[in-house]
Each structure stands twice: as structure tokens, then as C-alpha cells.
Write a protein that binds this DNA or RNA. Sequence first.
DNA 1: GCCTGCCAGGAAAGCGCTTACCTAAGGGGA
DNA 2: TCCCCTTAGGTAAGCGCTTTCCTGGCAGGC
Lengths: 339, 339
Amino acid sequence: MLVATLADVARRAGVSTATVSRIINNSPKPVADALRERVLAAVAELDYVPNANAQQLARADRTAVGVIVHDVSDPYFAEITRGLQRVATEHGRLVIICNSYRDPERELAYVDLLHAHRTAAVVLTGSGYIDPATTARLDHKLRLFEATGGRVAVIGRHEHAGDAIVPENEHGGWLAGDALYRLGHTSIGVIAGPAHLTTTADRLTGLHRAAHDHGHNLTTRHIEYAGFDRNGGHAAAAILLNRNPGLTAIAALNDSMAVGALALLRERGLEVPAQISLIGFDDMPISVDVTPPLSTVRLPLEEIGARAMSLALREDGTDPQVEHVAAHLVLRASTAPPR
Amino acid sequence: MLVATLADVARRAGVSTATVSRIINNSPKPVADALRERVLAAVAELDYVPNANAQQLARADRTAVGVIVHDVSDPYFAEITRGLQRVATEHGRLVIICNSYRDPERELAYVDLLHAHRTAAVVLTGSGYIDPATTARLDHKLRLFEATGGRVAVIGRHEHAGDAIVPENEHGGWLAGDALYRLGHTSIGVIAGPAHLTTTADRLTGLHRAAHDHGHNLTTRHIEYAGFDRNGGHAAAAILLNRNPGLTAIAALNDSMAVGALALLRERGLEVPAQISLIGFDDMPISVDVTPPLSTVRLPLEEIGARAMSLALREDGTDPQVEHVAAHLVLRASTAPPR
DNA sequence: GCCTGCCAGGAAAGCGCTTACCTAAGGGGA
DNA sequence: TCCCCTTAGGTAAGCGCTTTCCTGGCAGGC
């Protein structure tokens, strides 16, 4: 039960703790080879593992990086997280992943927690909340964290602390809408994400703009809000279909929901895209494996994660940076002109 | 840049650090309300956030839990991780997720790192390595960690430290094989995972046993090893098909590979299951969304994660426990008798 | 009115490290 | 030969907390 400490190692090797510390951290200070070996032997014999908390405290340096995501098991975040991790690992950083499960309070609590642990940076991924009070509190906490020497990077959010990676959600929404209108669709249903998320709002804005550009109008009866997952898409598609008999196309604000919608369409015996077109968003891996493969708006998720981490980890003290990431239309087989 | 410390708060409130500490941790020791308010006000004014490293050091308690997975962005681990996280959160624990990317050295390094951070527990998920040297080193490190008061839980591995959740991989393999033979298939190709992983070996053993039980034999020409992902399955299916013209069924050792195989089969114009049957493993979410929906062997991934975390977090000092998790056959539309 | 007992609050000793500073010994130059 | 400089290694002062133990003041009992 008892853990070997630096002092134990020093005692065993017959040297001072300073020497042991220097050897372990191979500090530039030269140490006689004989001593070094004695110490290393003692370390091995005692199975000594330094106490990282004590090290952090004494050194006052920041090593780990905290990442707050809505839910790692969601493929969207899984992709981003992979990019995040890759770059962090390249920099030799440990990543602490925290799932907020889209709960603003939990998100706030995690920021405090990462702050308390004096992580080098916190990366906040995924949609923010439209509620201004929450945003303000979060902003405040982030600034505080920065003020104490931590770095902040946000992905696809409207908070204005630290670096930011901003995917072109609005333009992406426009791309999806434009593609559909261009094909000749006029009655389009939209499966939106949760109404209180900025990502939902941004993508929807793009869709509205596309409608307007084509001389159409997206009314509330053509929009259904749902959870950003398969089940949400499934349920919303059913509602949309019941409410709008003439629907010839559905735009889902992410691919998971599109997959859910696709399942419902199949259940209803509707041919995609012959009878109804479907377009997703994000270009998640699954979109090529469903039948038909999904047309979608591609966001380079892994790259977004990687860039965010690069920003968060850069050493130069330059000002906060904002990088935009372009969305691209990916046409596959789920869209076609209405018949 | 300067962080407020306990001492700053104490000074500002005109009390000792002891009092502040007691108030902040609301220790049982009673404190006059007036003082408490003064201190809380000072905390708010200074935006004080306790230094978690110092707290850990002083308290010598263990709070966070470390989780080592192969890759969180892999749906298999994403599911498990979700269960892990859920339970950890219920216990108010912070989870540190580490991706080993199937590199034994990295895995070893992470165990050290979590040990160094004095996490309350480390949970090791996913297949272990067949190489005995690696296993022994890992075993040693885990035991060491336990000896210093940490808990260990492993999921689906053969290391023998701490608690263990063992999914019935072998029986699952048998179920898949048995189902196929029972349908009348005799020439079955197997898409296996990486050869050095125990999970691959275990599932394969079950398949061999099923073959044997039905009076057949699985030869090396019917087995192709690949990466546990979609691309691996795609490539392996091609090889298998070329090598065995008479193949009437393919068993993939996980669903991701099965999805890859399905894509290849479609490319080759082979109807599933009319011309060739396909069965997966794990029952990942995607398996219901491909066409045809995949027959597979279900492992309750989220539950496995949850149970592992429960074991790792239990307070009673009981002996290490081993819990087995049953695999179940899920027949969907990708399997049928050979024609 | 004095002594005892209780209680709120403070002083200080760590927790396990790192590191600035100091010491002692050895080597080289004059 | 003597002195000074270099250098390997040690001493000890923190890092920011927690917690044990102690103190001083007050109320109550005799």
C-alpha cells in the first residue's frame, strides 16, 4: 500500500533527493555515471513512479490538455476527438476528455475542473448554447482560465475567448438547400437539431437563405427540431411527412439524423431518391455505407480537431486566432430531381 | 497571469488559510456564518479556483479514473466508453481517456502515467496482446499500481490483475460459426482481426470449434487477417473471394469489417444474402443501417463499460472479481441458406 | 467570583517534488 | 606552492493545499 517516494530512492542510493530528481528528469546538470547508475538501480528496485501531482505543484508547469465534448461516442465528436488526440500525442501531451452530454451546467463545471487541474489548454468542441446567460458565464470562466496562463480553443462556437476554429455551418446549410432547390425541389422538409444549439441555428440560417435565394420560403411547418442522433432523425422524419404530404426532399442537419430519416423512409416504402430526396450534413463515415449512399455537406472533422489542437498548443504568444473551415457539397445517390 | 491562492483569499477575508480551506471543502468543523460569508465573498471577488494538484498532494486521495482504450473514435470503444463514463459520472469521478492506438508501448506508458497521477483506478479496455513479454510487463505495472492503492479493471483481456469483465468472445465466435453451418454453409471465409490480439484469437477459436462440431474444418486459406476496421474488412473480403471461388458465406470478427466486406460484395455485384451470406460481430449501431441489416453476435458494449466502471469504483475491499458477459446471436437479413 | 469545559479559529507541520543557492574538493596557472 | 575557478553534489526553501494540535475566550456550575 505504501508508495516509494523520491526520498526513499535517495536513501537507498545513498544520495540526496536533489540528485535523484536531476537524474530522473535528466536535467542539464551533469551527474557522475556511477551515481546515475546507482540511482537508476534504486528506482528500478523500488518500482518508483514519481507523483505527478507533486511534480506539477513544484514545477508549476502545465502539461495535460482538457477537451470538453458533447459526447465522444457520437461519431461527429469521435472524428474531431481523433484529430485532437493525434496532434496532442505528437506534442507529447496527455488529453483529458470530458463529456458534457450537452448539459451547459456540466460544461461549466468541467471548465472549472480543468482549470483546477491547471491543464495547459482547454478545447471546447461542438455547438454552444443560444442562451446568453450561459454563454456569458462560460465566457467569463474561459477568460479567467486564460488569465491564469491557460490556453483556450473553441470549435464551432460563438464564445469569444481564445482561439477558434469555425466551420462554415451557415454556408454548409446554404449548400444543402441550394443543391435541393437547384434540383427542382420546392417542398423541402428540414430535420433540425436541438433548437437551443448554435450549430442548429447556423445551419438553419443557411437553409433559409438558400430558400430565399431561390424565391422560396422555409416555414415552421417544414422544420422539425430533434435530437442530433439517429432516433431524432427517425422521429422527425415521420412528423414532417405527416405534416407535409407533398414533401419531395428532406434536409437533415447532420448525417446521424439523415440515417434515421432514411430508415423511416424505407419503413414507409418510399424510394430514395426516386420518390423523395435526402441530404445530410457532416459527411460522417456511415454516410457511404447506407443505401443509397448519402448526399451530404462535408466538414473535415478530423482536420478540424487537429487544427484546434495545434492552435491550443502553439508556443508563440500570438493573439487569439480564428480559422475558418470550409464546407463542401458531396453529392452521392440520395438526391435527385423530384419526379 | 497570476493565480489567486488560498493564502490570497485568507488575507483578503482576514482569516487564516485553515479557515478558508475548511469553508471551501465544507468540512464538518463549524464556522461562524459571518466568517463564512466573508470568505465566500473573497473567493468570488478573486475568482479563486483551488489548485487540484496541491489538493491531491495534501489529501493523498485519489479522484480521477483513467481509461485506456485502443481508439475512442472506433464505435466499439465509443460504446464501451459511454458506459464507462456514465457510471463514473454517477460517482462524481473525472475520467481521463487515453488512446493507445493499439500500440503496446503506448499502453504501457499510459499505465505509468495514470499511476503517476495517482488515479483512483485504471480501466484497460479492449483486446490484449498475444505476446507474452508485453503481457508480463503490463501485468507487473498493473500489480504495482494496485499495490499502491489503485484499482484495476480490465475488459476482455487476459491480464490477471484486478477486476475483469470478460465478454464471451469464444462462445460468440462459436455462435456465428454455428449459425452459418446450421444454415447449410460449408465453405465459409473468415475475416479476422489483427493476429496479435487476443480478441481475434478467442473469436477464431470459437469459429474453429463450431466448424469441428459440424464436422468441418477451417483452414488457413479460409481465414484472412486484417485491421479491425471497415477498410480491413473490405480488403480481406476481396482476398478471401479471390482465394476461395466457392465461398457461400463470410464471417467477420467485428461489424466494422463486416460493413467493409458488404461494400466489397456490392462492388462485385454479389447479392447478400442470396448469393453469399455475411455475419458480423458486436452488434454495433451501424449494423441495422446497412442494407441488408447485418446478422451479428451481440455484445452489450455500453453495459460492459458500465459494469467495468462499477467494479473499478466499488468501495468495499473485496477480492478481485471476474464477471462474464454473454454473447447473443442476432439474426437479421444478411444470412440465408446457400442456394 | 473562580474554575472547568467547550468551541471557533489559528499556527504550523507536512504531502512529494524542484531548484536556487551553497559547499567542498579537485585542477590548473602563475 | 598557493590561489582561484570550476564543478559535482547537497541543503533547504518553497509550490498550494489539508489537518492536527493548540490557543484564547466565553459560558456555566459551584
